[in-house]
Design a protein around this nucleic acid. Sequence first.
DNA 1: GCCTCCTCCCAAAGCGCTTTGGATGCTCCT
DNA 2: AGGAGCATCCAAAGCGCTTTGGGAGGAGGC
Lengths: 343, 343
Amino acid sequence: MPVKLKQLAELLGLSQTTVSRALNGYPEVNAKTRQRVLKAVRETGYRPNRAAQRLATGKAYSIGLVMPIASGIGSDIHFGEFLAGLAEEAVKHDFHFVLNPSAPEDEESTFRRLAASGNVDGLFLAHMRASDPRIAMLKSLSIPFIVHGRSIGGSKDYPFLDIDNTAAFYEATRLLIQLGHRRVALINGQEHLAFAIRRKKGVTRALTEWGLDLDETLVHHSVMTDGYGYRSMQRFLMQPNPPTAVLCSSTALALGAVRAINQAGLTVGTDISIIAHDDVLPMLKPENFSVPLTTTRSSLRAAGARVACRLIGGILERGAYPDQELWHPELIVRASTGPAPGK
Amino acid sequence: MPVKLKQLAELLGLSQTTVSRALNGYPEVNAKTRQRVLKAVRETGYRPNRAAQRLATGKAYSIGLVMPIASGIGSDIHFGEFLAGLAEEAVKHDFHFVLNPSAPEDEESTFRRLAASGNVDGLFLAHMRASDPRIAMLKSLSIPFIVHGRSIGGSKDYPFLDIDNTAAFYEATRLLIQLGHRRVALINGQEHLAFAIRRKKGVTRALTEWGLDLDETLVHHSVMTDGYGYRSMQRFLMQPNPPTAVLCSSTALALGAVRAINQAGLTVGTDISIIAHDDVLPMLKPENFSVPLTTTRSSLRAAGARVACRLIGGILERGAYPDQELWHPELIVRASTGPAPGK
DNA sequence: GCCTCCTCCCAAAGCGCTTTGGATGCTCCT
DNA sequence: AGGAGCATCCAAAGCGCTTTGGGAGGAGGC
């Protein structure tokens, strides 16, 4: 049997009220008393009963994610990583993390049901699309939420955590240009997703600044698996005027691209340069590629954890977090980038 | 404000006790009264408050899954599908589904913590390995659990749901043999996983019955992505005596295999036959392959749902489920299988 | 007719926490 | 000296459900 508040109070010769207040950071408790309480908690290993807290406070102490099924997102390699971050952080705070699979067409009603049920105190939004209608909808439901990524267009006043996709791909492209590359290709994520749009923008911007154009035939959009990476690269190589450098939106895509390059008898880093975005997937480490991959790096799991931390913090009204965060991926140069051939 | 038990009782002119009993299926309630109660529930839309139930009963009304991180399983395409089934079913019963990411080396302590915390009433076990130690461990923790898959060796008295992998691949192989194939290859899942072992066994058995051998150079084990499917197939084709038929443990593997075949200038279904196991991944429908795929089919999501249903049923002590289930995948013939060339 | 035994229902006591609405001393100011 | 005002603590009332321990009334046995 675990220790209960009552026993802890008796042990300390205090009332339950005071102990509870000491634990929850209320001001009307003497600092010394609070220390005593905290010490006793440590010694007895007391943990408040969440069920009782839920009942007493009306809070659910849980956060939810609506996970789309049938669209393939649920089966995306990157999704599990994000999930792990979320769940890990939730467990840490003793929050329940509630996964809600939903067909895309039922998404709206799922959100409504979830918000109304009182089963969760807050929600996550991911896989942002350009001008994503879900943001307005969650606002109208008046339930706390936080977005992983950012919409494009629409109002900007919602809490989010995003990485600076534009800057990352701008900088990656700039590096390629500096290395002498003039024809660069982009193997990107699905066209409707906000991050893909921004990455393309970053590439375009860099090229434009150097007076170059992004050739639309050198841009592919797809689900980010190595299969598609392979196919895209293969098609690029079949062009009369193939690119000398390729940007990949994921190391998974890069894996396929590298295969296509090798198969064509070319060498990564000398014949063709590659820069990929690295979500820090444990399965696909860029340093383990046959030719270690130059990448823009930002951990997807860390993003999940951060997002969860902020949402939970908001619910508990503890800790002050910025409402909007933009992480800047690092550009890490390894061996897959080199001067353009013939320069 | 939602309807509460008290109001419902007043409305019916009954005590809370009686209403509660009527709802929870206790015998000491008149059948007519129970009908009245159920009707009122329907009309008022009453839903018991889970937090209160948790507190009063001491049950958590939640089920947990320990999700391995860093090993790549969390990033497995098939994992999301299984997850969706679990979560969907949990939501349906108003259970919380708690995801617990854990590094493989911490798995044991994660199980312990989870069982001790009282945060979950039951656990899932998946990704069974041969003679998996986790089964004995969960037994010793005396917390209800259910296994997706089966261990190989060790005691057999634990609840599981598995598909008959041996039979499925036996029958698939038999079909190939009947079609005249004599050299069949196997692109399988990771070698240490129980399902992969059983599938190989099925293939071996069928071949042996017809006096054939499974050539070990025609068996590859790997994570089941199309990239590995491609690579395996490619290597098979480079052999002096390549197979005329291939079995794939996943449609993802098959996707890659098909690509390799096409690239070699061969045609699926005539030059080389393929049978894949179809987990019914929404992204990878066998009927949408350029040459529709012959498959052994068993929905992974359905398995997740069933497993959740049984675990929840056990916790609520409602409904009688078999303790061990073995689903038999269907063998569905499409266009990717045909007579062996030259026959 | 009386007592026992079911059947069906109820009042009230928790479950373990938070929160309201005071108490109790003390200090401080005029 | 006498409140006002503050700091610190407490008793008790919930939160919404389940469960214990009866109690009323009718059927059945003798």
